[in-house]
């Protein structure tokens, strides 16, 4: 239970001990939501920096841009397709989506808590509603994001010629 009292124990020096202490804090769902909000926010900021940098290529180096975003499809700079690369980026994409969705929903919960006069009375219901909404959205989103992984791309991205996978007719018009 969230209000579980823990016997106070002696302060231990050292970063690791403090992290372990923090995780044993016993703040319940509020503590974990706070941690998830903070970590997802920092993760999104990291992605945002990468994303602004890669998009900056569009103004002066279109080929750099295409080669960079082709990595999402599993095509490395050498022009070859590597399926683990594509899978890794898909899973990371799912992580990004989950981070943004959680940060958004939980952020609305934080706003309710802070700015709605009765918010502090409904802290726990708000947090559980955030959980239900988050997992509901991810339940629908996850299959959609992972669906393309069931087979290799028709043509590896970056408009480089490559042998099409067996059994997949190349029906792309205009290529």
């Amino acid at each position: 239970m969230p209000q579980t009292p823990r016997a106070p124990h002696a302060y231990q020096s050292g970063t690791l001990a403090r992290i372990v202490d923090g995780l044993r804090y016993g703040g319940g769902i509020g503590q974990w939501s706070w941690l998830a909000h903070r970590l997802s926010g920092l993760g999104i900021l990291f992605f945002l920096i990468v994303h602004i940098t890669d998009t900056f290529f569009v103004v002066f180096a279109p080929d750099w841009y295409d080669h960079t975003v082709a990595i999402y499809g599993g095509v490395w700079f050498d022009g070859h397709y590597y399926w683990p690369l594509r899978w890794a980026f898909r899973v990371a994409e799912l992580g990004l989506i989950a981070s943004v969705v959680f940060h958004a929903i939980n952020g609305v919960g934080v706003i309710l808590y802070d700015l709605w006069p009765k918010g502090s009375l409904y802290r726990k219901p708000i947090l559980w509603t955030v959980q239900v909404a988050f997992w509901g959205i991810m339940l629908v989103t996850t299959p959609i994001v992972l669906y393309p992984l069931r087979k290799a791309p028709d043509q590896p991205a970056a408009s480089r010629p490559a042998p099409p996978p067996a059994g997949v007719a190349s029906v792309v018009p205009g290529r």
């Binding site: 998009t55 569009v58 279109p62 080929d63 841009y65 295409d66 975003v69 082709a70 999402y72 499809g73 594509r86 994409e93 990004l96 989506i97 943004v100 969705v101 958004a104 989103t141 959609i144 994001v145 393309p148 791309p153 991205a157 970056a158 408009s159």
Partner: peptide, 21 residues
């Protein structure tokens, strides 16, 4: 969330390239 929905759900990120932008 709207940006993510357009880019990752309505579109497939693997089709995003310079011409798309």
């Amino acid at each position: 969330v709207g940006h993510l929905f357009i880019m990752h759900i309505l579109n497939n990120v693997e089709t995003i390239n310079y011409a798309f932008v």
